[in-house]
Design a protein around this nucleic acid. Sequence first.
DNA 1: TATCGATTGGAATTATTATTTCATATTCCC
DNA 2: GGGAATATGAAATAATAATTCCAATCGATA
Lengths: 288, 288
Amino acid sequence: MSLDRATMDERVPRDFETLRTTILERRESLPKRIAQIAAHALDNPDDIAFGTAASIAASAGVQPSTLIRFAQQLGFDGFTSLQQVFRERLRERNSSYDERLQALRVKAEGGAGHRAIFDGFVAAASTSLNDISRTLDEAHLEDAISLLAKAETIYVLAKRRSYPVASYIAYALGKLKIRNQLIESAAGLNAEMIGFATPADAVIAISFSPYAPATIEEARSISEQGVPIVAITDSSFSPLAQFAKVWFEVAEADFAGFRSLSATMALAMALTVGVGEKRRDTGRKRKA
Amino acid sequence: MSLDRATMDERVPRDFETLRTTILERRESLPKRIAQIAAHALDNPDDIAFGTAASIAASAGVQPSTLIRFAQQLGFDGFTSLQQVFRERLRERNSSYDERLQALRVKAEGGAGHRAIFDGFVAAASTSLNDISRTLDEAHLEDAISLLAKAETIYVLAKRRSYPVASYIAYALGKLKIRNQLIESAAGLNAEMIGFATPADAVIAISFSPYAPATIEEARSISEQGVPIVAITDSSFSPLAQFAKVWFEVAEADFAGFRSLSATMALAMALTVGVGEKRRDTGRKRKA
DNA sequence: TATCGATTGGAATTATTATTTCATATTCCC
DNA sequence: GGGAATATGAAATAATAATTCCAATCGATA
């Protein structure tokens, strides 16, 4: 039987991905208990990495011997060498994300050359995305999208650092054929523009500390007209938060004095596309 | 001696951070060999998690028994329970970058609710950052920064989807007190603006497929005036690439029909801040 | 420098854990 | 439905690994 293994499976999966693929390929042809372990292994790779043959077998509902047969079918010479693959995976994955970021930061702080600057911005953006992905409040997202989807016109309000986000929102809304108005006019016509907004409209306002006074002022005045505001800002103390019906707290990491926009951008696009989808759905329902 | 442990160390560190702190606190008061292991443990936590007492002891250059004494000094009842802490740490670590991205993509494709859309954009942004971090050509970066640092005025040229990047570059250049001109005029004065540019100036042009015809046209005409162009675009077939002195290929992942801007943003900021630094350095040299 | 306590090394012991074996059950094919 | 091949369960065995023990060494102190 060791001959069989040697002839049939000359190449033993050495890394987790290969192993995973191999298992999935053979899934159909595996005997019941072996398949049971295979499923368990792919679902709980950490348990395989740390458990003992007995404990794993128990939690998969099979005998330890079956676990060993599973390993052998895959070409390993026992459970131990199968386990190595699962352990290797954990080792490598730790070195991947956090350490890579860490490495980028170190390089960035080490400060040799312009590559370091670039790494710093990449690290800041990654960190920001990571944070927002963890902290975003799903209910807020739903609320904001509902609110914006009902609006006749969506006004987009942001200056200075946040302006690029506003301009991308406006671009995307335009592509989705959603009526919108970017409040940016250098010609000082903002007050007039804002005057046209009604409670049937809505505003997306974006501002981070130090808050551009014009943004705050315009947000105040537009909210006094009864126009609902969705705000993206950086803390609950932000003046924008008090005017807003729904607001998001986005913590952007900074580098070299410039904050990342990546998290804000992701959120902005989610809002925009979310509104687009919601309108399509509502449209369909009305027709039906 | 078990009494000592019970009375002296009632609280055994249960998580890695506490353990780490505890070790660092006691570092001074530890006997030589124990300290040796302590250092090794903090430096190679993965080895502690996966190794056997014997293998760890060997690679730390001590006897297995010392390793156990180390664990006991910390209040554990043996190596095994100390090891648990190191294993727990690996389990709790956020899953790897790729896996997390994968999870985001799956959620995004599963498509339930608006959170999925958000996840999709975060995944796209992360992917893009990841790619550019791997593929950015350092020499190009240096060339581009040198070129831009020498310019009297930096013109920034981008439309539509790329416009937000241009506006952020303009904002950042402004903050760094670097003379710049954003070519965006809706009033159709671009041709005139471009006419002012001379070979002593430089251009940052950004355009992705489908290339905005206006951007291409303006890039052509400005390059014919002998103004050097730094381009950010998406392939070597891009019409921008042929006009440019230096060009960067940036592959942005897209989601729901909108491409991420995160990689382009990071590169743009690196260029901007890089130019700022280079000018400061040159300024200092001139004075000295 | 002699002595006591703490520390260390190394082998012996104990424990845990992987693997093998074999009897039994199941499945598949004729 | 009978029989061979395959799969499974459970316990025995082999292996590996953790822990303990004791003698040797080191270091401070009187």
